[in-house]
Design a protein around this nucleic acid. Structure first.
Length: 817
DNA sequence: ATATACACGGATCCCCTATTTCC
DNA sequence: GGAAATAGGGGATCCGTGTA
């Protein structure tokens, strides 16, 4: 027996003689490409009724062991069974573990377990790789010592070692986890350019590739200038062949693109087909395969294909300020550099000397993608390690899938059998349930306040779930002794006080989050930060997960109770703060703002300690900050204060602006910047005088047509296919215009437009829409009445200045010209 | 395909009234 | 001259986006 130190990267499975085997590609310690083949005994569970007698169980076991399914290609039978004492939804159960020949047939086998003493059949609907990892504990992106037999030209598994381009192949006998050591994968970033955005429609003009000390642009277009990183070919086909050769030669661990699931890989595949070339990117020379979905997932055998856009969209975007998730903006925020400027036009119109810029542009995209991959690597590795799913899945799964994977991989700690995925009808039913009551939001009074204290609950929902033990596994249909009773709108619901595994798991997540946050503070480094963030994300998503109709552990009652008890706690706390004669000015979900008044900061902090000592369980209130001033405005429609809209300045002069148009991307920059400046001025100075001057200046500039076009562009996202819109809004018109001009329209596109002057008097805004590149003058009336005034009128109204006052002054000014 | 709460612009619908059209 | 058709104003409601 030999052994290697191994880090798993890419997981797949195959059948050999009717049985399932797992194939994992990774690296050994010397950086050599290694392949581990492991057997896997698939199984599922059947859970007995509590009333089932020992004798009956034995009977059933014998019957189960005779189950067999004959298919044309294979026969699957029950190989063996074991009786276990397990837990299901935190309750003790007797269950039978049924080992079968091939996991693909787990479903039909489950269907055959039709005995009245069996109340549930489970774990036949879990992905085979997930199941393998939970069983064998071969954790992705962690080092392991694999002992076993080296396969060298072995006929076993049909010559697997020679089918793959690998250095060593081992059939695993024993797997041991090693202590964490660093691993730096070999990335290869790539990007393609073409005239047409519709998949495969036009030719691929060029492909850029970036890896360690490697930069290339492959093209078949001629340029007047020779560049050392550009390789010229005589045709698209030759270029594609060389691209495939480079990928094979460099043999990266991770092939990384930006939106490459949705564009680059499918495009390459389509063009390769057209040119009758096999897109043999896989380690076994196979072509990429596509797993269906909203955006298909492009899998390359043996190499992890990471589409950074997808990872950023599903996981990382919440840490970003960027308003779009385009490569340019994201790279700017994370790396401080953006894409190269290039004025896109059809290749037939590009002059010879202009190609150089296009090549540079194309190369820069891959450089940025490469750098982003390096930057996000700590997050990918931490997510993969914590959730224990392969990188391919981690970078593509939604938040609910990540939470669920975390649960599945941790169930054995609690001796739990997994709950099943909801079936189609079940999902339909859950969705029809409608909404339950959510968070409490305090109705603020408009005004400019001084000396504000803000408290907030740390991980409020997660701490409520643990404190009150709210989950599917603790939800009771009836009231028993020692139960928690929660009043919901539709009646009372009950939860057991016996510890449920879900709340317990969540408390461990919270603990780990605290631990790594502390660790990060003591020693700031990307790994600690990524780890702390990953746990924070899991904790935050758990509440939503329990209320999500697609969840295995869906429990509407638990989700509704979480919200209800969070409301109760914050309202109780508000009462206590009031009783100390503080004046509450605002509260939303987990935060409370009130005036310091005559009290000192120390008194307030002492009071916070007292509040904390009275809070149930692990619930915790902390001081968010002291603020020098805060502004709350009225709603547009009624005189009441607007919720979720306020601006604060702390004692260090740092602003916190929420909900205002300043932070909304569907307002033009002119209105946003103006509002931002005005808010900041008012908060800094404590009055509106100077702010009013800023407003006048802007109105003046607007009327004199001094405003730059960039400032008046309105951006709105297209959230569904154009044809599905019932209300034809300005951004829909703009999208139609783009489509007419021959550019493709994608769902999710950010549509840009401005409102122009028109000759004829038109009443609808949409009739004045123009695209940024269209010539025209901006509509002064529109920008004044629909952008500038609405953005600031509520602010000035706090100081008793009415919209008419502002407008009248303007009109007088207008006459002066 | 994590949850609900909230603000608000613009379109659309509906009702009412004034004006125009038609007999 | 009077009824019917039409235009236009104003408010309620719906649709849609984005944020907390």
């Amino acid at each position: 027996m030999t052994s290697i130190n191994f880090i798993p990267l890419d997981y797949d499975y195959f059948d050999f003689q009717g049985k399932n085997y797992i194939r994992i590609i990774g690296r050994d310690e010397k950086g050599k490409r290694a392949c581990v083949v492991d057997h896997f005994d698939p199984f599922l569970w059947a859970i007995f009724e509590d009333s089932a007698s020992e004798k009956r169980i034995k009977d059933i076991q014998k019957k189960i062991e005779k189950i067999e399914i004959k298919l044309p290609s294979r026969t699957t039978k029950v190989e063996r069974t074991e009786i276990h004492e397990k837990k299901f939804l935190s309750k003790k159960v007797k269950a039978i573990k049924i080992f079968i020949t091939n996991y693909k047939d787990a479903h039909p086998i489950a269907d055959k377990l039709d005995f009245k003493e069996i109340k549930a059949r489970r774990e036949y609907d879990i992905n085979i790789i997930t199941k393998y990892i939970t069983e064998k504990k071969l954790i992705p992106l962690s080092w392991h010592k694999i002992s076993g037999e080296i396969l060298n030209n072995s006929q076993e598994f049909g010559n697997i070692d020679s089918a793959f381009d690998i250095d060593v192949c081992i059939k695993a006998e024993k797997i041991e986890k090693l202590n964490n050591k660093k691993f730096r994968p070999k990335f290869l970033a790539f990007d393609i350019e073409s005239d047409e955005l519709e998949l495969g429609k036009g030719e691929i003009l060029m492909i850029s590739l970036v890896s360690d000390n490697f930069k290339k642009v492959l093209t078949w277009k001629k340029s007047s200038e020779k560049l050392n990183y550009v390789e010229y070919f005589k045709s698209e086909a030759e270029m594609l062949k060389t691209f495939i050769n480079y990928v094979n030669k460099i043999s990266p661990d991770i092939l990384v693109g930006y939106f490459s699931d949705g564009f680059d890989i499918p495009y390459l595949k389509a063009r390769a087909e057209k040119n009758k070339i096999k897109l043999a990117l896989g380690l076994d020379k196979s072509q990429p395969s596509f797993i269906r979905g909203r955006i298909p997932k492009a899998r390359i055998s043996g190499i992890v294909h990471v589409d950074l856009f997808r990872f950023i969209e599903s996981v990382y975007s919440q840490y970003l300020q960027s308003e779009t998730l385009g490569l340019n903006e994201v790279a700017f925020e994370l790396l401080g550099e953006g894409k190269k400027e290039f004025n896109h036009k059809h290749s037939s119109k590009i002059k010879e000397h202009e190609w150089k810029d296009y090549f540079e542009y194309n190369l820069q995209d891959s450089i940025l993608t490469y750098k982003l991959a390096e930057k996000l690597w700590p997050d990918m590795i931490e997510f993969s390690g914590i959730i224990q799913e392969p990188l391919f899945e981690i970078t593509r799964n939604s938040m609910s899938q990540l939470v669920e994977s975390y649960i599945l991989h941790n169930l054995d700690k609690y001796n739990e059998i997994a709950e099943k995925r909801p079936l189609h009808d079940e999902i339909k039913e859950r969705r029809q349930m409608g909404k339950y009551v959510g968070a409490f939001v305090f109705q603020p009074k408009p005004g400019l306040y001084k000396n504000i204290v803000m408290f907030d609950f740390t991980s409020m929902y997660a701490s409520v779930i643990f404190t009150y033990n709210l989950s599917l596994s603790t939800f009771l249909k009836k009231k028993f002794n020692k139960t928690l009773e929660v009043n919901l709108e539709k009646g009372k619901v009950y939860f057991s006080k016996e510890q449920g595994f879900f709340p317990l798991m969540l408390s461990e997540i919270i603990e780990k989050r605290k631990k790594y946050k502390k660790e990060y503070k003591q020693n700031p480094n990307p790994i600690a930060k990524a780890r702390s963030n990953a746990y924070k994300l899991l904790a935050n998503a758990s509440y939503g997960y329990q209320g999500f109709f697609g969840a295995r552990y869906y429990c509407r009652e638990a989700a509704a109770s979480t919200a209800a008890l969070a409301r109760k706690n914050i309202l109780d706390t508000i009462d206590k703060i009031k009783k100390q004669s503080y004046e509450i000015i605002y509260s939303d979900t987990d935060s409370i703002a009130f005036l310091l008044g005559k009290k000192s900061k120390k008194q307030t902090i002492d009071f916070l300690k007292k509040l904390n000592s009275e809070l149930p369980g692990i619930m915790e209130l902390e001081l968010e900050d002291f603020y020098k001033r805060g502004l709350f405005v009225a709603k547009r429609t009624v005189k009441l204060g607007a919720k979720k809209k306020y601006a604060l300045i702390n004692e260090k002069g740092k602003f916190k602006i929420r909900g205002f148009e300043t932070v909304r991307r569907d307002w033009c920059n002119l209105a946003r910047n103006l509002q931002n400046k005005i808010l900041q001025k008012i908060l800094k100075e404590g009055n509106e005088k100077k702010a009013l001057e800023i407003l006048k200046k802007t109105v003046d500039d607007l009327k004199k047509r001094k405003i730059l076009k960039e400032q008046i562009i309105i951006r709105t996202q297209l959230k569904k296919p154009l044809s599905e819109y019932k209300a034809i809004t300005p951004h829909v018109i703009a999208a139609e215009k783009i489509k007419k001009s021959g550019k493709p329209i994608d769902m999710g596109m950010l549509i840009e437009y401005y409102i122009a002057e028109t000759k004829i008097k038109k009443s609808l805004v949409r009739e004045k829409v123009k695209l940024p590149e269209e010539k025209g003058e901006y509509n002064i009336k529109y920008y004044l009445e629909h952008q500038i005034i609405p953005a600031v009128e509520n602010i000035f109204e706090v100081f008793g200045i009415k919209k008419e006052d502002i407008l009248q002054k303007d009109q007088r000014k207008l006459h002066e010209f």
